[in-house]
Design a binder for these strands. Structure first.
Length: 106
DNA sequence: CGGTTGACCAAGT
DNA sequence: GACTTGGCCAACC
């Protein structure tokens, strides 16, 4: 089973699950939504991602629209995003601002 | 409890 | 436009 994720990590995962299909968000947006500025802590938490299936971590990209990274490999991340109707251009998300999703937009 | 690391970000060179 | 530096927060050693 899973280790004991901290409240912070759980919060990140819960937020990711709120992301609609075909949309992406940034590490920064997540941190801000959680009421903090720990962009790095969010990224690190994703690295601790216990359930890459339950939690759509592949919908999280860097603030520049770059894919950033993925526990299962960027190739996998790209495939998933394209599968959701997103356009990926050379390690980067096209129409990033268009598909960008904010927790405050709900 | 101090120091290092990390799927980062923004600004400066 | 690409690389370097400083800064932020949380988890790990």
């Amino acid at each position: 089973m899973k280790s004991s994720p901290t409240e912070f990590e759980r919060r990140c995962y819960a937020l990711l699950r709120q992301i609609p299909e075909g949309r992406v968000t940034t590490y920064k947006a997540i941190a801000e939504a959680l009421g903090t500025k720990a962009y790095r802590a969010v990224g690190r938490a994703m690295g601790a991602n216990p359930d890459p299936v339950i939690v759509p971590c592949h919908r999280v990209v860097a603030s520049d629209g770059t894919l950033g990274g993925y526990a299962l490999g960027l190739e996998r991340k790209i495939a998933l995003l394209e599968s959701e109707g997103l356009r990926i251009g050379q390690g980067r998300v096209e129409d990033f601002k268009t598909v960008f999703w904010s927790a405050f937009s709900v």
